[in-house]
Design a binder for these strands. Structure first.
Lengths: 185, 185
DNA sequence: CCTACCGATCGGTAGG
DNA sequence: CCTACCGATCGGTAGG
């Protein structure tokens, strides 16, 4: 049983690497099977479909972001400190599971119902919390901006920086520049 | 002749819409044919291959950015004014040909040689010029940052904002917030 | 620009 | 987990 779960996770992680490298659509089950050392049909002993792999990657990533956000959001600290913690959260996850984060960011659109709705709902919840932190910060005069939706989108874009860019830099330097961009603002 | 060129361009533009919507790999020539009102095989009277469509989209977009960059880069104006002009350039192109810009940003990795090398070279040239503007601005004390490569990557990410985000906002508001992020820095 | 068609590859199943 | 295989779909060509 334990072995089975581990192998399934190994297949999912390998799928994340391939989806990141070639994209979900351009990756075949045969590619995946070759990389994990199985015959193509044997993959289906561990998963039900190709899309299942994408669902697992996207939803586990979404869960991790949601949990991390809640830990920050409900703390009694300033909006500025929350934004800093949020930057760290994104960097921690991106450095830990870079392939999954890239797939989560770029390939989620290939999800179908009912998983798609779950995904979009989780994301919307996450976005609402970021926006709340930003508007709270503006109220107490710590952030300056005019259009919350635009600033939110810019920040999300900076935070969802893909693996390929992130792996070239050192985490502390990245954190310093991002913090400067986001919280000096 | 003129009709032929126009129809080819119509096919390319329709392809850009589909590639943006579903991704290059997940878009079939049959999808494209249906959308332009032709039989699948008739598409090949206008193009040589599916990848030709991607090449045309990516390279024409690259050309437009390169030309716009040169117009800005060789002017005798301050680094700060160059960055503002660069923001305008990106917004102008993104609002004008949103689908092509998204494909240019997200689907170029499906290009093969020899086009891929041309593409990467054009991009590298473009990036060198942005970095030069940033370092020039730092020298005269107008920009503040520590790591040029990180700041460059953050700015490129903000500028290459995809169509889906951009179409929700008004161009002037976007320009204002982006300018605030980039040149106050 | 169409009809007719090609070989290759796809996701997935049957049965052991 | 494998062998053997399925129907569907792919990019692309021949020939008119």
């Amino acid at each position: 049983m334990t072995t089975s779960i581990t192998k399934k996770q190994f297949i999912i992680n390998t799928a994340a690497d391939l989806f990141q490298e070639r994209g979900y659509s351009a990756t075949s089950i045969r590619d995946l099977a070759a990389k994990v050392g199985l015959e193509p049909s044997s993959i289906y002993s561990h998963i039900r479909s190709k899309e299942d792999l994408l669902s697992e990657i996207c939803m586990s990533c979404a869960d991790r972001f949601s949990k991390g956000m809640n830990d920050i959001y409900f703390q009694d600290i300033s909006p500025r400190k929350k934004m800093r913690a949020l930057i760290q959260l994104h960097l921690d996850i991106a450095f830990d599971i870079p392939a999954s984060v890239t797939v989560f960011n770029d390939e989620w659109r290939f999800l179908h119902e009912p998983v798609l709705s779950d995904f979009l709902e989780a994301r919307k919840e996450y976005e609402k919390k970021i926006k709340k932190i930003l508007t709270d910060g503006k109220k107490v005069g710590k952030f300056e901006f005019q259009n919350i939706d635009i600033v939110f989108s810019i920040i999300i874009k900076m935070l969802s920086w893909s693996h390929s860019a992130i792996k070239k830099f050192n985490k502390e330097a990245l954190e310093a520049e991002l913090t400067s961009f986001i919280t000096k603002h």
